[in-house]
Design a protein around this nucleic acid. Structure first.
Length: 152
DNA sequence: GCCAACGTTGGC
DNA sequence: GCCAACGTTGGC
């Protein structure tokens, strides 16, 4: 089993939205590296740190699990979708997505500031300079540390 | 709203 | 294949 961090802008889709919907497709990823993680490496049951970016409060808001493995992002086929991409035809889809399922909302957010201050998390990809990846792998120990931080 | 750091596109 | 121009991400 693997661990992941997935970024979402809470104004668009927050941990509360996921809680309400129970499951959600992770549509709209239009970056090859992030796509490759979803398409090739994410397996059902993997755990996801749900991260709120571009918000008043930035950080890990809770947990989700992968409930459906990679399949074509059909929003790319929908001309009315903001994720429409004519370069991803049905016959040869370019973009893929997984489905995630709500697991829990942390009693309190583990903020980006706290993550930056925590020495044992200094190697997290999240806080490497210039990293804009919206989906990235997280180690087991990083995952466990963040869960622990959410508890106090 | 600003802007640094990327990633993508397209002309050559 | 190079690289300038452009678009996006995301913290502040």
């Amino acid at each position: 089993m693997k661990y992941w961090l997935m970024k979402s802008e809470p104004d668009v889709f927050s941990i509360d939205d996921l809680k309400k919907n129970k499951t959600s497709p992770w549509e709209g990823v239009r970056n090859y590296q992030a796509r490759n993680f979803m398409r090739d490496d994410m397996k059902k049951g993997d755990i996801v740190l749900f991260y709120h970016s571009n918000a008043k409060e930035i950080g890990v808001a809770g947990l989700a699990t992968v409930s459906k493995e990679s399949h074509p992002d059909h929003f790319a086929w929908d001309k009315k979708s903001k994720y429409y991409d004519p370069k991803s035809p049905k016959e040869n889809p370019r973009w893929f997505m997984v489905e995630v399922k709500f697991k829990e909302k942390f009693p309190r957010m583990v903020t980006l500031g706290e993550i930056k201050e925590e020495k044992s998390l200094k190697d997290m990809r999240l806080i490497q300079k210039g990293n804009r990846l919206s989906i990235m792998p997280v180690t087991k120990s990083e995952y466990e540390k963040i869960v622990k931080m959410s508890e106090k």
